[in-house]
Amino acid sequence: DLSGKLIIKAQLGEDIRRIPIHNEDITYDELVLMMQRVFRGKLLSNDEVTIKYKDEDGDLITIFDSSDLSFAIQCSRILKLTLFVNG
């Protein structure tokens, strides 16, 4: 049953990962930690990372904090994230 699940599709460069999320109350910090685990070796804990999501118009919107993240989650059951490393 995928109805209650949130799917995160995260892209870093050419690498795209699909991550099912069971807890929608994820904070921004938890998201960043999850991305560091998912992209281990490509995304380091001291990297400056910018996370953006695609909205319904196809625009890339920056996620700065947990309220941005929860808004993005409300918009779509499949959250398409693009990561930019400013390392």
Rank of each mutant, 00 (worst) to 15 (best):
Leu2Ser: 12
Ile73Asn: 01
Ser3Asp: 14
Arg37Met: 08
Ile63Met: 10
Leu2His: 08
Ile78Ser: 10
Leu2Trp: 05
Tyr53Trp: 05
Arg17Asp: 01
Gly87Arg: 10
Asn23Arg: 09
Ile26Gly: 00
Asp59Thr: 14
Phe84Trp: 07
Ser66Glu: 03
Ser70Ile: 07
Ile61Ser: 11
Lys9Ser: 15
Ile73Phe: 07
Leu81Lys: 02
Phe39Asn: 01
Ser76Pro: 03
Ile26Cys: 06
Thr82Ile: 13
Gly41Ser: 08
Leu83Gln: 01
Glu24Thr: 09
Val85Ile: 12
Asp59Gln: 15
Ile63Gln: 00
Ile78Tyr: 10
Asp59Asn: 15
Thr50Asn: 03
Tyr28Lys: 06
Ile19Asp: 00
Ile63Arg: 00
Asn46Phe: 13
Lys54Gln: 15
Arg37Cys: 08
Glu14Leu: 10
Ile21Pro: 02
Ile73Glu: 00
His22Ala: 11
Cys75Pro: 04
Val32Phe: 07
Thr62Met: 02
Asp59Arg: 15
Lys5Leu: 05
Gln74Glu: 08
Val32Asp: 02
Gly58Glu: 05
Asp15Gln: 15
Ile73Ala: 04
Asp57Gly: 15
Ile63Gly: 02
Lys80His: 13
Glu14Pro: 08
Ile63Asp: 00
Asp29Arg: 06
Leu43His: 04
Met34Asn: 09
Arg77Tyr: 05
Val85Ser: 05
Ser66Ile: 03
Ser70Trp: 07
Ile21Tyr: 11
Gly13Met: 04
Lys5Ile: 05
Thr62His: 05
Phe39Gly: 00
Ile19Gln: 01
Gly41Lys: 05
Asp25Thr: 11
Leu31Ser: 00
Gly58Gln: 05
Phe71Arg: 15
Glu56Pro: 13
Leu12Glu: 01
Leu6Asp: 01
Leu44Gly: 10
Phe64Arg: 15
Arg17Trp: 02
Ala10Thr: 03
Asp25Ile: 13
Ile8Met: 06
Asp1His: 03
Asp25Pro: 06
Phe84Lys: 08
Asn46Gly: 14
Gly58Phe: 02
Glu14Thr: 07
Leu6Glu: 02
Leu81Trp: 00
Leu79Tyr: 05
Asn46His: 09
Ile73Lys: 08
Leu6Cys: 07
Asp65Thr: 12
Leu44Val: 06
Ser45His: 09
Ala72Glu: 00
Asp65Leu: 00
Phe84Thr: 13
Leu43Arg: 03
Gly41Leu: 06
Asp29Thr: 10
Lys80Trp: 10
Leu69Met: 01
Ile7Val: 07
Ile51Leu: 06
Ser70Gln: 09
Asp1Asn: 12
Asp57Ala: 13
Phe39Ala: 00
Leu31Ala: 01
Ile61Asp: 02
Gly58Pro: 02
Arg77Asp: 14
Thr82Trp: 09
Ile63Tyr: 00
Asp59Tyr: 13
Tyr28Ala: 01
Leu79Arg: 10
Ser45Ile: 08
Leu12Phe: 10
Asn23Ser: 10
Ile26Tyr: 02
Arg17Thr: 04
Ser67Arg: 13
Ile61Pro: 02
Ser45Leu: 10
Leu43Lys: 03
Glu30Ser: 06
Ser3Trp: 03
Val38Asn: 13
Phe71Asp: 15
Leu43Pro: 02
Leu2Arg: 06
Lys80Asp: 15
Ile19Tyr: 03
Leu6Thr: 08
Ala10Tyr: 02
Ile19Ser: 00
Ala10Asn: 01
Leu6Arg: 10
Leu60Pro: 05
Val32Glu: 02
Leu6Phe: 10
Ile19Lys: 01
Gln11Phe: 02
Glu14Ile: 11
Leu2Glu: 03
Thr82Tyr: 12
Ile21Trp: 08
Arg37Pro: 01
Leu31Gly: 00
Tyr53Val: 04
Asp25Glu: 07
Asn23Pro: 08
Leu83Thr: 01
Leu60Ser: 09
Leu2Tyr: 14
Asp15Pro: 00
Leu2Gln: 09
Glu56Lys: 15
Asp65Lys: 07
Gln74Arg: 12
Glu14Gly: 08
Leu79Val: 10
Ile8Trp: 03
Ile19Met: 07
Gly58Arg: 03
Arg18Thr: 15
Gly41Tyr: 07
Ala72Cys: 07
Ile21Gly: 03
Lys54His: 13
Gly41Asn: 06
Leu83Ser: 00
Arg37Leu: 08
Leu60Glu: 08
Glu14Cys: 12
Leu69Ser: 01
Phe71Val: 15
Arg77Ser: 08
Thr82His: 09
Val32Lys: 12
Leu6Tyr: 10
Ile16Tyr: 12
Asp1Lys: 11
Tyr28His: 03
Asp15Trp: 11
Lys54Phe: 09
Gly4Asn: 13
Ile21Leu: 09
Asp59Glu: 14
Thr27Trp: 00
Val38Glu: 14
Asp29Pro: 09
